[in-house]
């Protein structure tokens, strides 16, 4: 970016309140076209709220949000559908129609968005190809693995061929193997030009992909690997979200024992076999798989 160029996406001193409780406080963030950004932080840190500001699910109390020349706060109620058609949204819970096949789920979304039958016939196979689900096109959602279901959800987010993809905890319901698979798919889409914003607390996946990571805590941005690479990914570990009950004391203890610069190898050590979680884990389970919950 040159000194005078405008960022693709810019939050400037944005604040959001939920029933007078501050959800975001004076957040400022800039994202370039074609960037891949992870928003990380504990539950309630404000990462989902940041995404919802873009989709107009939430209105900002203060500040400005510019996206590719559009001042999002100025988009009125009747402008929301058009706004949403220009971005792809991937929810955590897949939101697939259980009685429709994979291709029908995509076709349904396209029809809802106003596509003609001809457009659907042409586009659905393309999308299936992009998310590597051609071979499962005739399967029903309950016949798919979690990763496959999320692939379909990502495919649905692509029906409008959006330049911006927003994913809110896309791997929240997936095991580590499928989480990596999904993130790799998002990276692949990013490689083809789509700007991707992902809210996630999946430390291992974030570590592995080595993308820009913006860390949030209590409604504020407390770290950004683009401007402050040293602090990454330590902040992720400190903000390890929603650990299972048996792991809470261990995570807290480890984080306290090993404060700042922890590398990805260290991250494995931190979450590797621990007395309590190892006891609870099935014998044939790889302990690394339990590291991320």
């Amino acid at each position: 970016m040159t000194e005078f160029s405008t960022p693709y996406l810019r939050f400037q001193n944005v604040s959001v309140n939920y029933a007078k409780h501050p959800a975001l406080s004076e957040v400022s963030l800039e994202v370039e076209r074609g960037e891949f950004v992870f928003l990380v932080g504990r539950t309630g840190a404000g990462k989902s709220t940041l995404l919802k500001l873009l989709t107009k699910e939430v209105d900002a109390a203060e500040g400005t949000i510019d996206w590719d020349g559009t001042e999002i706060r100025r988009v009125g109620v009747f402008g929301i559908p058009k706004l949403r058609r220009s971005m792809g949204i991937v929810p955590q819970d897949f939101a697939l129609l259980p009685r429709k096949k994979v291709w029908e789920n995509l076709a349904y979304a396209m029809r809802a968005a106003g596509a003609t039958r001809r457009q659907i016939r042409r586009r659905v196979p393309e999308i299936l190809e992009r998310v590597n689900m051609v071979h499962r096109a005739d399967a029903y959602p309950d016949q798919l693995s979690g990763g496959e279901q999320q692939r379909v959800a990502i495919g649905r987010a692509l029906v409008n061929d959006p330049p911006l993809l927003l994913a809110d905890e896309p791997t929240g319901n997936l095991d580590p193997e499928h989480s990596i698979e999904i993130m790799e798919l998002l990276v692949e889409l990013n490689r083809k030009g789509t700007t991707v914003l992902v809210a996630s607390h999946d430390v291992l996946v974030i570590e592995r992909l080595r993308k820009r990571t913006v860390t949030m805590s209590e409604g504020r941005i407390v770290g950004d690997s683009k401007t402050d690479p040293v602090t990454q990914p330590m902040l992720d570990l400190e903000l390890e979200p929603e650990p299972s009950p048996v792991e809470i004391p261990v995570v807290v203890e480890t984080a306290a024992a090993a404060p700042v610069s922890v590398s990805s190898e260290n991250a494995k050590e931190v979450t590797d076999p621990l007395p309590i979680s190892a006891e609870d884990a099935p014998e044939d389970t790889d302990p690394k798989e339990n590291a991320d919950v």
Partner: peptide, 16 residues
């Protein structure tokens, strides 16, 4: 509610 949610996710018009 799932259909409605999908419609809103993909930007279906109010009329739809």
């Amino acid at each position: 509610r799932i259909e409605i949610r999908i419609m809103k996710l993909v930007g279906a018009s109010y009329a739809t």
